[in-house]
Design a protein around this nucleic acid. Structure first.
Length: 508
DNA sequence: AAACAGTGCGCG
DNA sequence: AAAGCGCGCACTGTTT
């Protein structure tokens, strides 16, 4: 059964009411689409897919497939694919889906070394971009503008959702696919696309619930790095040996899964898998597999639920890392999870910091995660509403908010307004929100990206919203002259100049 | 023809 | 004792 969530306080009601008003304005504004580019991209991708499919056709897998299925042959059928690969051709297919079929997802196919399978994965990736993203844009665009819906009434956690098309799952992680799709989203003439996001908002909001002092210190002290620290532990590395991809794995294959309620068996699998799949190499150039061998770990371990891991395996190591993570490092967080779930079991409901009542039959992990996910989004919703309904209008600005992605705000801003707009986001998303909601007991931080004038969403580059003294010191100006706050904007070229300046001063 | 479950995959 | 949270969308294959 699904959880029932109701705004049960006046504040919660007002938040949703104003949120709906703001999102309606955002939907009405819409975002501009580069139609000529979109048409060309669709044609180009169609050709690419066809070429790959023709190449797949010339392999033994395709021939076997056609022999087995005749005219019913369909390369998009996962059922047929599993049958051909694992029953007909004898590839090793140990993994099963929930429904008891062969698993044929990216991870399962990644273990099969065959040209047909490699091409199929590429066709899937391109096909997703083509059929879902590019054709989705094409289908929904009206007179050069796209108006995705943003809903507040569809989710169990009281986050938002987006559809027709979904603006919240446009590719960004794979560079090529990101370029292909995001290139189609452009600003109005003479304007710039701006995206401002909360950094680590769920971690920060979770801290407001559990108040673990170790976590709060990680958040407050900017020189500390939790994801790097956990990557060090998982892969038994010194801090200097942690590369960006290794840190990425620590973050996305251990820390976040652990926060969401995952356990060491699955963490061990993905962390171990990543060493070869991603070709992880330490900062001094040693393959991670070799490094672990030198540390005495040669095997992954069986990773079978219910079976204790064999000592000396990677699985046993990650089990120990998990134990330290919750029993030593984040003891208070661990205790909060237990207490919070117990209280839910007693009452059958719980109330979020933002005034929403969650009730119904919930699993432990849902009880832990819902309030955090919901309240984190509500921070964005509050700031978004304030910005759209009040601040932009009050300051007679022409900047338009055009979308929202859970923890980020996307806008289409006239060139002349960009700096003021960015200062305003700092003011609203950080200063005003923290004043409005005193339960936020850790600092909030935002990060901003700006694309050059009239250039598309792919061209966005990070800008820094920095304390005025920093820039004033660099430019030899008096700080505190700006209208909004003690902040100033550093664009990419200025960042380089400032770094050069600081370096020159240090040498001098 | 429409509805539904299952699978896979894009995002936070 | 259980064992990753939340979405939307495309597609296959079955049921209504």
């Amino acid at each position: 059964m699904k959880a029932q969530v109701t705004p049960c306080s006046k504040d919660a009601y007002t938040l949703l009411h104003n949120g709906a008003r703001a999102l309606a304005q955002i939907e009405a504004a819409g975002m501009r689409v580069d139609i000529p580019y979109l048409d060309a991209a669709i044609k180009r991708t169609e050709r690419q897919v066809k070429r790959l499919q023709a190449r797949m056709e010339r392999t033994d897998v395709a021939r076997t497939w056609r022999k087995a299925y005749g005219p019913k042959t369909n390369f998009d059928s996962t059922q047929q694919l599993g049958d051909i690969l694992f029953d007909w051709m004898g590839f090793d297919g140990s993994e099963e889906t929930a429904g008891g079929s062969y698993k044929t997802d990216k991870v399962a196919l990644g273990k099969i070394d065959h040209p047909f399978v490699r091409d199929m994965l590429r066709v899937r990736q391109l096909g997703k971009a083509l059929n879902t993203n590019l054709r989705g844009l094409k289908r929904e665009v009206q007179d050069e503008y796209l108006h995705p819906f943003f809903n507040l009434h569809t989710t169990t956690t009281f986050r938002s959702s987006s559809d027709h098309p979904n603006f919240q799952n446009i590719p960004v992680r794979e560079e090529g696919i990101k370029q292909l799709v995001r290139r189609a989203i452009i600003p109005r003439p003479g304007r710039q696309l701006v995206e401002v996001d909360y950094s680590g908002i769920e971690v920060r909001i979770a801290a407001c619930y559990h108040q673990d002092p170790v976590m709060i210190e990680y958040i407050r002290d900017e020189t500390k790095d939790m994801h790097r620290d956990m990557a060090m532990e998982c892969y038994m590395l010194a801090a200097e040996e942690v590369t960006k991809p290794i840190r990425y794995c620590g973050k996305n294959m251990f820390v976040f899964p652990q926060f969401y309620g995952d356990w060491y068996v699955d963490c061990a699998k993905s962390l171990w898998n990543a060493t070869s799949e991603m070709g992880l190499v330490t900062e001094s150039g040693l393959a991670l597999g070799e490094h672990l061998k030198a540390k005495g770990i040669r095997r992954r371990g069986a990773c079978i639920p219910g079976k204790d891991p064999v000592p000396g395996t990677f699985e046993a190591h990650i089990q120990a890392v998990e134990h330290r993570f919750w029993q030593e490092r984040f003891r208070v967080y661990d205790q909060w999870k237990k207490d919070w779930f117990k209280a839910y079991q007693r009452k059958g409901s719980f109330r979020s910091k933002t005034g929403f009542l969650y009730q119904g039959y919930l699993k432990r992990n849902e009880v832990i995660n819902y309030p955090v996910q919901g309240s984190a989004f509500h921070c964005l919703l509050w700031a978004l509403s304030r910005l759209v309904l009040r601040e932009l209008r009050r300051n007679k600005m022409k900047a338009l908010v055009i979308g929202q992605i859970h923890d980020s705000i996307v806008s289409d801003v006239p060139e002349a307004e960009v700096d003021d707009y960015l200062l305003l986001t700092q003011e609203v998303m950080v200063e005003k929100l923290m004043k409005a909601w005193p339960w936020i007991c850790v600092p909030l931080v935002i990060e901003a990206e700006v694309a050059p004038v009239t250039e598309s969403w792919v061209a966005k580059k990070e800008v820094r919203i920095t304390l005025a003294e920093h820039k004033a010191g660099w430019q030899g100006l008096e700080p505190g002259t700006r209208e909004w706050s003690g902040y100033w904007i550093l664009h990419p070229d200025e960042q380089e100049q400032m770094i050069a300046y600081t370096r020159a001063r240090k040498i001098g």
